[in-house]
Amino acid sequence: MADYDENTVIDKKIKPILHTILSNCKVEAENKCLQVPLNEFEERVAFYTGLPKAMLNQVFFSNATKNNEQSIRHRIVILKALLKFYKNEHRPNFKDLYNYLCMSKLKITTFKNIDDFRYALISMGFDYRKTNKGSMIVEDAEITFERYNYIKNYKKLRNAKIRMAYVEERYITKHFTFNKPDFDNDCPYIVDNEKCLAEGFYFYHVLSDAGLENYIITNKICVATYQKFVVDVLFRHLKKGCAVVIDNHPIHGKLIDQTITRYHTKADMLNWLRMANIPYSDSMCKAELYELISRCKKPSSGYELDRLLNAHGHEVLRLPSGCDELSPSVLLWNQVKEDMKGMKIDDTQLENAIISAVTKAHKHSWKPLNKITYETENTLLSLYASTEEALDKFVQFDV
């Protein structure tokens, strides 16, 4: 133990942590039992220190391999494995799940060790949650609900024969990489370097059952060029009544802050209540309106882009987190990449080669890819129902 100088002033940030540790140790001493089992060491650290898991994960996984690009197939495998534990009324931890997947036929990606596995799952939204029977791994409910609502809305529109338009952007290089572009909210646009521009371009496009509807090519990715694409391409060429499917890439707009304070105008307060479908009277004063607002939940935040598309007669569906492959357009790009593997094309012909490859892949693969997404949707809905039933029978979550 290090020597302690009584004149040393304890850092303000450390004091509350020490106080939390002391309080929790005292509770355990009084109850004569551990609050968190010994094998759940991460939960124990979070419990004793009172620090958020997101902060502690930076320490836990500082040496783990970052592997955030797990496919929807991986997520389904993990959900199926967790469901098996829940049905058997066993509280899974990361070690249990890791060992089960290693021994079963449900192998997904080869990880160096359990730390890599744990890091990947946490990045996908799987983590410990406290229940009346102790902590166990579950998927973040926000991710679960977001995915469920997307699939139900997507199916509803598809069953109504609404035309689907998939809006995407890719960074395409002469090496036939077709990655989703990176984007920094603090920069007006991303241009890695001159070599980057010399090797490829950004490809904004719209895909539908009819094929590659339209596209633009640009040497930079930014909100301004994307808005130009929306105005000059989407609004002009999409027929009214389409359902536009997009992901939550930063250039697709930011959530509009709908927070109402006491200092907003009466008109703002009335509009907030109207948007939230909450009854009110125009004769009410601001104090009365704000009291009504404060008693109600904030309406779902919206995106500026979504409102623009809605104003032009289109529905908007945003792909849920970690589920890009629910869009057949994402699967199509995987097919294009496979088709163009090993090809040698002159730089000046890259654009034509890409258009040709996308058109060919769409002609031969679009229907089968839609079938794949349809089957994936049904699998996820079935897992949702089974998991919800199993968990409700097994445990009660701390709220």
Rank of each mutant, 00 (worst) to 15 (best):
126 F>N: 01
128 Y>R: 05
129 R>F: 11
130 K>R: 13
131 T>A: 06
134 G>D: 02
135 S>V: 07
135 S>K: 11
136 M>Y: 01
140 D>M: 08
140 D>L: 12
141 A>M: 13
143 I>E: 06
143 I>T: 02
143 I>L: 12
143 I>S: 07
144 T>N: 07
145 F>I: 15
148 Y>K: 15
149 N>F: 12
149 N>Q: 13
152 K>H: 12
153 N>D: 12
153 N>P: 06
154 Y>D: 06
154 Y>E: 08
154 Y>G: 05
155 K>I: 06
155 K>V: 06
156 K>M: 12
156 K>L: 13
158 R>M: 08
160 A>E: 15
161 K>N: 11
161 K>C: 06
162 I>A: 03
163 R>F: 10
163 R>Y: 14
164 M>G: 05
164 M>F: 13
165 A>C: 13
165 A>E: 09
167 V>Q: 08
167 V>I: 14
168 E>P: 08
169 E>A: 02
169 E>M: 05
171 Y>V: 04
171 Y>I: 05
172 I>Y: 02
173 T>D: 01
174 K>W: 09
176 F>K: 10
177 T>E: 15
178 F>N: 00
178 F>D: 00
179 N>Q: 12
180 K>D: 03
186 D>W: 10
186 D>C: 09
186 D>K: 15
187 C>N: 08
187 C>A: 10
188 P>A: 12
188 P>D: 14
188 P>E: 13
190 I>N: 03
190 I>D: 04
191 V>K: 07
192 D>N: 14
194 E>D: 13
194 E>G: 12
194 E>N: 15
198 A>G: 09
198 A>I: 11
198 A>T: 12
200 G>F: 01
200 G>W: 01
203 F>V: 02
204 Y>V: 06
207 L>N: 01
207 L>W: 02
209 D>P: 03
210 A>D: 14
212 L>Y: 05
214 N>H: 11
216 I>E: 08
217 I>A: 06
218 T>W: 08
221 I>N: 09
222 C>L: 00
222 C>V: 04
222 C>R: 07
223 V>Y: 06
224 A>H: 13
225 T>N: 09
226 Y>V: 04
227 Q>R: 10
229 F>D: 08
230 V>W: 03
232 D>S: 13
234 L>N: 00
235 F>E: 14
235 F>L: 15
235 F>V: 13
236 R>S: 10
237 H>C: 07
239 K>D: 09
240 K>A: 00
240 K>Y: 05
240 K>Q: 09
241 G>Q: 00
241 G>V: 01
243 A>K: 00
244 V>G: 01
247 D>K: 04
247 D>H: 02
249 H>P: 00
249 H>C: 00
249 H>K: 00
251 I>N: 00
251 I>R: 00
251 I>H: 02
253 G>S: 04
255 L>D: 02
256 I>Q: 07
257 D>H: 06
259 T>D: 11
260 I>F: 03
